[in-house]
Protein backbone atom coordinates (compact mmCIF):
# COMPACT_ATOMS: atom_id res chain seq x y z
CA UNK A 1 0.00 0.00 0.00
CA UNK A 2 2.99 2.31 0.03
CA UNK A 3 2.91 5.28 -2.26
CA UNK A 4 4.61 4.94 -5.65
CA UNK A 5 7.91 6.75 -5.89
CA UNK A 6 8.26 9.60 -8.39
CA UNK A 7 10.39 8.66 -11.44
CA UNK A 8 12.99 11.31 -10.60
CA UNK A 9 13.63 12.81 -7.17
CA UNK A 10 11.88 16.18 -7.01
CA UNK A 11 13.98 19.31 -6.60
CA UNK A 12 11.23 21.33 -4.99
CA UNK A 13 8.51 20.59 -2.44
CA UNK A 14 5.74 22.52 -0.74
CA UNK A 15 5.89 22.32 3.03
CA UNK A 16 2.53 22.05 4.73
CA UNK A 17 3.05 22.83 8.41
CA UNK A 18 -0.28 21.63 9.84
CA UNK A 19 -1.85 23.90 12.45
CA UNK A 20 -0.44 22.10 15.48
CA UNK A 21 3.14 22.31 14.22
CA UNK A 22 2.58 25.90 13.16
CA UNK A 23 1.20 27.11 16.48
CA UNK A 24 2.75 24.76 19.05
CA UNK A 25 5.72 22.92 17.60
CA UNK A 26 7.33 25.13 14.91
CA UNK A 27 10.74 23.62 15.72
CA UNK A 28 9.50 20.33 14.29
CA UNK A 29 8.53 22.18 11.11
CA UNK A 30 11.90 23.91 10.89
CA UNK A 31 13.67 20.62 11.49
CA UNK A 32 11.71 19.05 8.64
CA UNK A 33 12.49 21.96 6.34
CA UNK A 34 16.19 21.80 7.17
CA UNK A 35 16.29 18.04 6.65
CA UNK A 36 14.80 18.57 3.20
CA UNK A 37 17.23 21.37 2.37
CA UNK A 38 20.09 19.16 3.50
CA UNK A 39 18.99 16.79 0.73
CA UNK A 40 19.29 19.63 -1.76
CA UNK A 41 15.57 20.16 -2.06
CA UNK A 42 14.11 23.63 -2.31
CA UNK A 43 11.32 24.10 0.21
CA UNK A 44 8.40 26.41 -0.48
CA UNK A 45 6.34 27.57 2.46
CA UNK A 46 3.06 29.09 1.26
CA UNK A 47 2.00 31.75 3.73
CA UNK A 48 -1.66 31.17 2.87
CA UNK A 49 -1.84 27.66 4.30
CA UNK A 50 -3.94 27.22 7.47
CA UNK A 51 -5.39 23.88 8.64
CA UNK A 52 -6.19 20.68 6.75
CA UNK A 53 -9.80 20.75 7.96
CA UNK A 54 -9.69 17.59 9.96
CA UNK A 55 -11.12 19.00 13.22
CA UNK A 56 -14.42 19.94 11.57
CA UNK A 57 -14.47 16.87 9.34
CA UNK A 58 -14.03 14.39 12.15
CA UNK A 59 -16.73 16.18 14.12
CA UNK A 60 -19.15 15.71 11.24
CA UNK A 61 -19.16 19.34 10.04
CA UNK A 62 -18.37 18.59 6.42
CA UNK A 63 -19.63 21.92 5.07
CA UNK A 64 -17.23 23.91 7.21
CA UNK A 65 -14.41 21.45 6.47
CA UNK A 66 -14.96 21.83 2.71
CA UNK A 67 -14.61 25.60 2.81
CA UNK A 68 -11.34 25.32 4.68
CA UNK A 69 -10.09 22.64 2.30
CA UNK A 70 -10.81 24.87 -0.68
CA UNK A 71 -8.57 27.53 0.88
CA UNK A 72 -5.78 24.92 1.09
CA UNK A 73 -6.38 23.93 -2.53
CA UNK A 74 -5.65 27.52 -3.49
CA UNK A 75 -2.63 27.87 -1.20
CA UNK A 76 -1.05 24.62 -2.38
CA UNK A 77 -1.45 25.15 -6.14
CA UNK A 78 1.33 23.72 -8.28
CA UNK A 79 2.74 20.37 -9.33
CA UNK A 80 5.43 19.60 -6.83
CA UNK A 81 5.00 17.22 -3.89
CA UNK A 82 3.34 18.47 -0.72
CA UNK A 83 5.06 17.19 2.42
CA UNK A 84 3.51 17.16 5.90
CA UNK A 85 5.09 16.51 9.30
CA UNK A 86 1.99 14.56 10.35
CA UNK A 87 0.52 11.19 9.44
CA UNK A 88 -2.90 12.28 10.52
CA UNK A 89 -3.09 15.45 8.41
CA UNK A 90 -1.44 13.66 5.49
CA UNK A 91 -4.12 10.95 5.68
CA UNK A 92 -6.79 13.64 5.80
CA UNK A 93 -5.50 15.17 2.57
CA UNK A 94 -4.65 11.95 0.83
CA UNK A 95 -7.63 9.79 1.73
CA UNK A 96 -10.40 11.94 3.14
CA UNK A 97 -10.25 14.95 0.80
CA UNK A 98 -11.33 12.83 -2.18
CA UNK A 99 -14.20 11.34 -0.14
CA UNK A 100 -15.29 14.76 1.02
CA UNK A 101 -15.32 16.18 -2.51
CA UNK A 102 -16.62 13.13 -4.42
CA UNK A 103 -19.26 14.25 -6.90
CA UNK A 104 -18.43 17.95 -6.55
CA UNK A 105 -17.01 20.20 -9.30
CA UNK A 106 -13.68 20.28 -7.45
CA UNK A 107 -13.33 16.49 -7.25
CA UNK A 108 -10.65 16.29 -9.92
CA UNK A 109 -8.54 19.14 -8.55
CA UNK A 110 -8.81 17.66 -5.06
CA UNK A 111 -7.69 14.25 -6.29
CA UNK A 112 -4.71 15.86 -8.01
CA UNK A 113 -3.84 17.56 -4.72
CA UNK A 114 -4.24 14.30 -2.78
CA UNK A 115 -1.90 12.52 -5.19
CA UNK A 116 0.87 15.03 -4.39
CA UNK A 117 0.67 14.49 -0.64
CA UNK A 118 3.49 12.79 1.31
CA UNK A 119 4.03 12.26 4.97
CA UNK A 120 7.45 13.83 5.47
CA UNK A 121 9.30 11.01 7.23
CA UNK A 122 8.20 8.63 4.47
CA UNK A 123 9.34 11.18 1.88
CA UNK A 124 12.74 11.54 3.55
CA UNK A 125 13.22 7.80 3.84
CA UNK A 126 12.00 6.53 0.51
CA UNK A 127 12.10 9.47 -1.91
CA UNK A 128 15.18 11.27 -0.58
CA UNK A 129 16.79 8.03 0.68
CA UNK A 130 18.21 10.08 3.51
CA UNK A 131 21.38 8.87 5.25
CA UNK A 132 21.68 9.92 8.88
CA UNK A 133 25.01 10.24 10.73
CA UNK A 134 24.42 10.26 14.42
CA UNK A 135 26.36 12.94 16.34
CA UNK A 136 24.52 12.51 19.64
CA UNK A 137 25.11 10.78 22.94
CA UNK A 138 23.76 7.26 23.53
CA UNK A 139 20.05 7.31 24.30
CA UNK A 140 17.13 4.89 24.55
CA UNK A 141 14.18 6.02 22.46
CA UNK A 142 10.76 4.55 21.74
CA UNK A 143 8.83 5.32 18.57
CA UNK A 144 5.11 5.93 18.87
CA UNK A 145 3.59 5.62 15.42
CA UNK A 146 0.20 7.30 15.25
CA UNK A 147 -2.83 5.29 14.17
CA UNK A 148 -3.21 7.41 11.01
CA UNK A 149 0.43 6.98 10.07
CA UNK A 150 0.23 3.26 10.80
CA UNK A 151 -3.12 2.30 9.36
CA UNK A 152 -4.15 5.00 6.91
CA UNK A 153 -0.70 5.82 5.51
CA UNK A 154 0.88 2.38 5.99
CA UNK A 155 3.96 3.80 7.70
CA UNK A 156 4.40 1.45 10.65
CA UNK A 157 8.04 0.78 9.71
CA UNK A 158 9.07 4.27 8.62
CA UNK A 159 9.91 5.86 11.97
CA UNK A 160 11.74 2.76 13.26
CA UNK A 161 13.77 2.53 10.05
CA UNK A 162 14.89 6.14 10.36
CA UNK A 163 15.76 5.74 14.04
CA UNK A 164 17.69 2.56 13.31
CA UNK A 165 20.05 4.54 11.09
CA UNK A 166 21.24 6.39 14.19
CA UNK A 167 24.22 4.54 15.67
CA UNK A 168 23.94 5.92 19.20
CA UNK A 169 20.20 5.46 19.49
CA UNK A 170 18.91 2.30 21.06
CA UNK A 171 15.34 1.90 19.93
CA UNK A 172 13.20 0.14 22.53
CA UNK A 173 9.75 -1.23 21.75
CA UNK A 174 6.82 -0.68 24.07
CA UNK A 175 4.18 -3.34 24.75
CA UNK A 176 1.06 -3.04 22.59
CA UNK A 177 2.88 -0.62 20.31
CA UNK A 178 0.04 -0.54 17.80
CA UNK A 179 -2.60 0.43 20.33
CA UNK A 180 -4.01 3.96 20.13
CA UNK A 181 -2.72 6.51 22.67
CA UNK A 182 -6.24 7.82 23.27
CA UNK A 183 -5.93 11.26 21.66
CA UNK A 184 -8.51 11.15 18.88
CA UNK A 185 -8.91 14.94 18.66
CA UNK A 186 -12.08 15.98 20.42
CA UNK A 187 -12.38 12.45 21.82
CA UNK A 188 -9.81 13.46 24.44
CA UNK A 189 -12.19 16.14 25.70
CA UNK A 190 -15.58 14.62 24.95
CA UNK A 191 -14.68 11.20 26.39
CA UNK A 192 -11.95 12.47 28.69
CA UNK A 193 -12.02 9.59 31.15
CA UNK A 194 -11.66 6.88 28.53
CA UNK A 195 -8.92 8.91 26.87
CA UNK A 196 -7.17 9.31 30.22
CA UNK A 197 -7.23 5.55 30.79
CA UNK A 198 -5.74 4.98 27.34
CA UNK A 199 -2.96 7.55 27.63
CA UNK A 200 -2.03 6.28 31.10
CA UNK A 201 -1.52 2.78 29.68
CA UNK A 202 0.44 4.11 26.71
CA UNK A 203 2.75 6.25 28.84
CA UNK A 204 3.37 3.41 31.25
CA UNK A 205 4.16 1.01 28.40
CA UNK A 206 6.69 3.48 26.98
CA UNK A 207 8.24 3.97 30.41
CA UNK A 208 8.33 0.22 31.09
CA UNK A 209 10.18 -0.33 27.82
CA UNK A 210 13.02 1.69 29.29
CA UNK A 211 12.65 4.68 26.97
CA UNK A 212 14.31 7.93 28.02
CA UNK A 213 12.35 9.76 25.40
CA UNK A 214 9.58 8.92 22.94
CA UNK A 215 9.30 10.26 19.44
CA UNK A 216 6.34 10.43 17.09
CA UNK A 217 5.34 12.04 13.81
CA UNK A 218 2.01 13.28 15.11
CA UNK A 219 1.68 16.26 17.41
CA UNK A 220 -1.75 15.21 18.66
CA UNK A 221 -0.31 12.01 20.11
CA UNK A 222 2.66 13.96 21.42
CA UNK A 223 0.56 16.55 23.24
CA UNK A 224 -1.44 13.73 24.70
CA UNK A 225 1.36 11.44 25.85
CA UNK A 226 3.94 14.11 26.75
CA UNK A 227 1.26 16.13 28.55
CA UNK A 228 0.52 13.05 30.60
CA UNK A 229 4.12 12.10 31.36
CA UNK A 230 4.87 15.69 32.36
CA UNK A 231 1.90 16.04 34.68
CA UNK A 232 2.58 12.66 36.28
CA UNK A 233 6.30 13.38 36.59
CA UNK A 234 7.30 10.23 34.68
CA UNK A 235 10.47 11.80 33.29
CA UNK A 236 9.65 10.73 29.76
CA UNK A 237 9.62 13.72 27.40
CA UNK A 238 8.25 13.51 23.89
CA UNK A 239 9.64 14.95 20.72
CA UNK A 240 8.63 15.12 17.10
CA UNK A 241 10.62 12.59 15.10
CA UNK A 242 11.89 15.33 12.77
CA UNK A 243 13.16 17.47 15.65
CA UNK A 244 14.88 14.43 17.07
CA UNK A 245 16.56 13.50 13.78
CA UNK A 246 17.75 17.06 13.18
CA UNK A 247 19.09 17.25 16.71
CA UNK A 248 21.00 13.97 16.28
CA UNK A 249 22.64 15.22 13.08
CA UNK A 250 23.79 18.46 14.66
CA UNK A 251 24.04 17.82 18.36
CA UNK A 252 27.45 18.28 19.86
CA UNK A 253 26.66 17.67 23.45
CA UNK A 254 24.10 20.46 23.76
CA UNK A 255 20.91 19.75 25.64
CA UNK A 256 17.97 18.92 23.41
CA UNK A 257 15.12 21.37 23.24
CA UNK A 258 12.20 19.54 24.74
CA UNK A 259 8.86 20.05 23.08
CA UNK A 260 5.47 19.38 24.49
CA UNK A 261 6.37 20.78 27.88
CA UNK A 262 5.81 24.18 29.42
CA UNK A 263 8.74 26.48 29.18
Amino acid sequence: MSQALPPTPPTQVIFYATCLVDLYFPDAGLAGIQLLERQGIQVIFPQNQTCCGQPAYSSGFNDQAREVVLAQLEALAGDCPIVLPSGSCAAMMKHHYPELFAGTPQAQAIQALADRVWELSDFLLRVCQIQLQDQGQPIKVAMHTSCSARREMGLAETGPQLLDQLSQVERVEQARASECCGFGGRFSLRHADISAAMVADKAQALKAAGAERFVTTDCGCMMNIAGYTEKQGLGLPGQHLLSFLWERLNAEGQAPEEVGGRS
Binding site: L189, A192, G227, K231, G261
Partner: peptide
Protein backbone atom coordinates in the same frame (compact mmCIF):
# COMPACT_ATOMS: atom_id res chain seq x y z
CA UNK B 1 -9.06 22.67 30.21
CA UNK B 2 -11.84 20.27 31.10
CA UNK B 3 -10.91 16.63 31.19
CA UNK B 4 -7.63 17.26 29.36
CA UNK B 5 -5.78 18.84 32.28
CA UNK B 6 -7.11 16.36 34.83
CA UNK B 7 -4.27 14.04 33.82
CA UNK B 8 -2.17 16.15 31.43
CA UNK B 9 -0.46 19.51 31.17
CA UNK B 10 -1.69 21.87 28.49
CA UNK B 11 0.80 22.57 25.71
CA UNK B 12 1.96 26.15 25.44
CA UNK B 13 1.70 28.02 22.14
CA UNK B 14 5.06 28.72 20.51
Amino acid sequence: LGGWTRVRTLPKPA
